[in-house]
Design a protein around this nucleic acid. Structure first.
Length: 197
DNA sequence: CCCTGATTCGC
DNA sequence: GCGAATCAGG
């Protein structure tokens, strides 16, 4: 496979959307994530800050090459790159209609089984809920059959309707949900403290 | 172990 | 230019 115009276009699109190199590679087919990453760099869009070039001055003009080639171990010397890479999380809206985001508890729960924990809104941190609502937009919306060992199995919607799917985003290693859903699924004891009953 | 991107360098 | 191998990190 070669980097045709449309393949590059798709690459750019997905990369700017925040898709991972491996996801892009799968989508494109015929290439590995390494190929994707390599291309991304050659295209000069390694900096995912969609907008600006983030002008990065070239401080150190490559120092003298002590020992040239040779099978010697890689030179880890990074001439210079303070770049804190602004990880500005677009948390924004604190109160994102979170409530509607919680997986609806159907009235027809079979014999009460493994449905994921479905805490009530009032006992989850607003941040976590906000995160969930954000993530939901990017959810893969998988069907039961499409879930795998490593996809988020958080259910969304009412199982009794067509509007039901599973998150499907990459799950946290060892956990059944993606980062965002792990956040609302597993809470520290402290938060459910005075919930005596 | 799973995954991520970054870099090098023979091709 | 390409991308496997490798590195570094979560």
């Amino acid at each position: 496979m070669s980097w045709t115009d449309e393949r590059v276009t798709l690459l750019k699109k997905m990369w700017s959307e925040g898709q991972s190199a491996s996801q892009i590679a799968k989508e494109l087919g015929g290439v590995t994530r390494n190929a994707v990453i390599g291309k991304v760099h050659r295209l000069g869009l390694s900096n995912r800050t969609g907008g600006e070039p983030a002008a990065e001055p070239q401080p150190a003009p490559a120092a003298p090459r002590a020992e040239p080639r040779a099978k010697a171990p890689r030179e880890e010397a990074r001439t210079g790159e303070p770049e804190p890479a602004a990880e500005a999380a677009p948390q924004a809206a604190p109160e994102t209609k979170a409530a509607s985001v919680i997986p609806a508890r159907s009235k027809i729960i079979p014999a009460g089984q493994p449905l994921p924990p479905q805490p009530s809104a009032n006992e989850i941190s607003p941040e976590a809920l906000a995160k969930v609502s954000e993530v939901e937009k990017k959810a893969k919306k998988l069907t039961l059959m499409e879930l795998t060992e490593r996809t988020c199995k958080w259910p969304v919607g009412d199982p009794a309707t067509e509007d039901f799917w599973f998150c499907g985003l990459p799950a946290q290693q060892g956990k059944p949900y993606c980062e965002a859903h792990v956040g609302v699924a597993f809470q520290p004891m402290s938060s459910r403290r005075d919930r005596r009953r």
